[in-house]
Design a protein around this nucleic acid. Structure first.
Lengths: 99, 99
DNA sequence: GAATTATATCGGTAAAACCCGATATGATCA
DNA sequence: TGATCATATCGGGTTTTACCGATATAATTC
């Protein structure tokens, strides 16, 4: 767990929002025909909601993924992102005792 | 509690180190004649250990203070900084449930 | 009051992050 | 194969952060 990288990833309003949205996809995103939410939410849906360009949102998701905060699954032409809850749990513990 | 400001404050290697050092001043700093560690550690000692300039360290401590991660006490010509543990506890809980 | 010491603030350069448009890659489908 | 759609990557302008030296402020000491 690279704390510094995680804190940098969390140092952006939009990225924090994305993480919140991914906490409850059913509420925060329209359900689509091509998939439920088991695999997560595809980039395009997140992009629409964020109101930033596709390239920016794609980069943000990479940053979150490199920090271990989300993981991705490729299905056909879509990449689905979902939260990686273990990292949040670990981070919470690290803040309690190791920082 | 302004999460974004806290995460930004934690997004710097030296600032993370300072917070760690302040966790155990007796081990990490030479005890001085003019005070014990009840009030915290003065800027000069932190600066020496950090190896950055006085102005940089002073600014870093301000950033940590604005984020609520440390608090300061002025005693004579010295400003002592110490950790504000409540903020760490709160942050840990926020990561568990609100992010 | 003048000199000294500790800290804060100001002004600036260099590096990093933000966010974009353009383009590349890779899957799907006619 | 060619067209289309979803996503990733690249190049770059703009803003923010990192860190410095110089200077200001405030307390202490002579």
């Amino acid at each position: 767990m690279k704390q510094l990288e995680i804190f940098k990833a969390l140092s952006n309003k939009t990225r924090l929002e994305i993480l919140l949205w991914l906490k409850d996809p059913v509420t925060n995103f329209p359900e689509h025909i091509h998939a439920g939410f088991e695999a997560g939410v595809c980039v395009g849906e997140i992009q629409k909601k964020a109101g930033l360009t596709q390239s920016t949102v794609s980069e943000y998701l990479s940053i979150l993924q490199r920090a271990g905060l989300v993981s991705s699954t490729r299905v056909g032409q879509w990449t689905y992102y979902k939260r990686n809850e273990e990292t949040f749990t670990e981070l919470s513990k690290i803040i309690e005792s190791d920082i």
